[in-house]
């Protein structure tokens, strides 16, 4: 077993999703190599080399990969795989990994697996299907390579280790040539990364979601205020999105974002199946609703049967009182 982990990095560190992917790769046994792509990746490569269990760090350090679109990076991955023949290739199940890995897999004539949540052995894995309403255990075919993406909330981050210093190898220009020269047909125009003070819905430790019972877009401000107090993000049920209270990208559920924060507070959300599918892996769930029979209470650790227009301001005051 030899695994290549495709890394995402920001500045001088690997991303959190990549650290979880390394932990999943470790569960396979065998040697782990990490591949970093972009320009001036040495600081992040050094970070990778200090992580527990890394055998080798490969860098494709070239301007051509700095704004690398999936077309070019998939070609690179194929070139690296053809020369080095890893048994497994893993990537985080981030927008980066989900965009790139299937493209590379098709070029290698391999059927990849998405969103792995458990490694049983080097060929047997578990992943959620139907938005986590069922768990599928599956086996890869005997011939590799086996490509998969990893759901980061299912694996802890790989720790640094003082004694660890994996070798860093710069991939030769010859090996990079085909990917560098590829006529991709895709041009990177720009990126608008959210500058919001609020954390991103997908990775926030606290998520407060509102349902149709909020009654209006204005009333969602109550939730923003509480979220800001707790350093959290705000989500919404599909019903609230359909009613026009908030935009689509706030939707938590089977057809929206799947979240698993430490604390999820569902406010005026009835708990339709498609909403539960998007949040039921949260560590602690709080439901606030006037109807004691609604299904959200069946998944909640703490339920509060109360009018949300009284409960939310009171909750804000009480949290402030006890000091968060």
């Amino acid at each position: 077993v030899s695994t290549l982990v495709l890394a995402e990095h920001r500045g001088d560190k690997l991303g959190g999703d990549t650290l979880s992917t390394i932990t999943a790769a470790k569960a396979l046994g065998g040697e782990i190599s990490v591949l970093l792509t972009g320009q001036n990746v040495l600081p992040a490569a050094k970070h990778a080399s200090t992580l527990q269990g890394i055998g080798q760090v490969l860098t494709a350090d070239d301007a051509a990969f700095e704004k690398g679109t999936a077309e070019r990076l998939a070609a690179l991955l194929v070139a690296v795989q053809k020369r080095r023949s890893f048994t497994h290739i893993a990537a985080p199940s981030s927008s980066f990994g989900r965009d790139l890995l299937p493209r590379a897999a098709a070029l290698l004539d391999a059927q990849p697996a998405s969103d792995v949540t458990e490694v049983i052995d080097a060929e047997t894995f578990v992943r959620p299907i139907y938005a986590g309403n069922a768990m599928q255990t599956f086996r890869f075919p005997a011939e590799g390579p086996r490509l998969f993406t990893v759901r980061s909330s299912a694996f802890p981050a790989a720790p640094e280790e003082a004694s660890s210093s994996a070798q860093i190898e710069e991939i030769s220009q010859e090996e990079l040539a085909a990917a560098k020269e590829l006529e991709t047909g895709s041009e990177w125009v720009g990126q608008d990364v959210s500058t919001s003070e609020r954390p991103e819905l997908g990775s926030a430790k606290v998520v407060i979601s509102g349902g149709r019972a909020l009654k209006s877009a204005e009333n969602f401000h109550m939730l923003y205020d509480l979220a800001d107090q707790l350093g959290g993000a705000v989500g919404a049920s599909r019903a609230a999105v359909d009613a026009g209270f908030c935009p689509n990208d706030m939707q938590v559920g089977q057809t929206g974002k799947v979240v698993a924060p430490d604390l999820y507070i569902a406010v005026g959300v009835s708990g339709a199946i498609q909403h539960l599918a998007g949040m039921k892996d949260s560590k602690c769930i709080v439901a606030i609703n006037t109807d004691p029979d609604c299904p959200i209470f069946q998944v909640a650790d703490y339920g509060l049967v109360m009018d949300l227009f009284e409960a939310i301001p009171a909750l804000g005051k009480e949290i402030q009182k006890v000091g968060k």
Binding site: T69, S94, S95, F96, G185, S186, E187, W188, V189, G190, Q191, D192, V193, S194, E200, G202, D249
Partner: peptide, 12 residues
């Protein structure tokens, strides 16, 4: 839609 924001591509 990418993690944390939006990206724009121009495709042939």
């Amino acid at each position: 839609e990418v993690d944390g924001g939006l990206q724009t591509l121009r495709l042939r």
